[in-house]
Design a protein around this nucleic acid. Sequence first.
DNA 1: GTACTTGCAAACAGTTTGCATAGGC
DNA 2: GCCTATGCAAACTGTTTGCAAGTAC
Lengths: 134, 134
Amino acid sequence: MLDLNSILLKLRKNGLRVTPQRCAILEHLIGNKNHPPAEAIYEEVKKRYPMMSLSTVYNTLDALLAIGEIQELLLEDKRIRFDPDPSPHHHFQCLKCGKVKDIFREIDIPRDKIDENRIESWRVYFYGTCSDCL
Amino acid sequence: MLDLNSILLKLRKNGLRVTPQRCAILEHLIGNKNHPPAEAIYEEVKKRYPMMSLSTVYNTLDALLAIGEIQELLLEDKRIRFDPDPSPHHHFQCLKCGKVKDIFREIDIPRDKIDENRIESWRVYFYGTCSDCL
DNA sequence: GTACTTGCAAACAGTTTGCATAGGC
DNA sequence: GCCTATGCAAACTGTTTGCAAGTAC
């Protein structure tokens, strides 16, 4: 998820419409490193666009998932978080403050098969204490 | 989670009581490779112990988590699953049939720090097509 | 104008909680 | 006998759905 215009184009290319609500959510997500859950996106975007509804947030997130512009994270706090960087990378959650960070260090993952199961994707979640809390 | 008696001992050692319900749940979990969610455990155990209630299942799972005899899994189907093997290993979920398998192959994970964050644990989730569905 | 999208409320799934009763130790 | 555990129901959280009205194209 790099710039607004290319995403708007991609939405249109997929028969999805560009609405002010979707633009507001996109503006809030682009470059966002907080890995927010839907509720947090809703609360933030509502400050500037008070007409925003929570189901529109979910609707938009679904659309962005479908066109591969964001990814979902399933962390130990058991709420779905959204990452505006859909590229394969890993995640770390601080067990003290709850913060989620991107981890770009390469991990040697088997890319093909394990025990006769075909691997198509994988996720690595790290837990511990973040640099700020140490 | 190996044999019933050692777990019962561990429960008592931690001030937790041994009840018929807990024994029934333990018997169902020991050696279970299905990574069931709470609801499935409830349905299965109720067949033989019709007095079982869902909150007792959750209560017992909480107790077993607290003494480190099971672990929780957070997979792409977004329901919490339980693994009666608390030792660190990885998991694979088939995107076709939903089956979850244990992966014991070693993955080279940084054991200490990444980007100044102290790593205390990690989870690797693989997704793809399982050997049965291929 | 035709769909797709919105926003509200209501439904839903999974989990947690409150509380009177039962029962392990 | 004390105190934790049970079982029921009700509350709760996060997410999804139904639908009439609005709007991008």
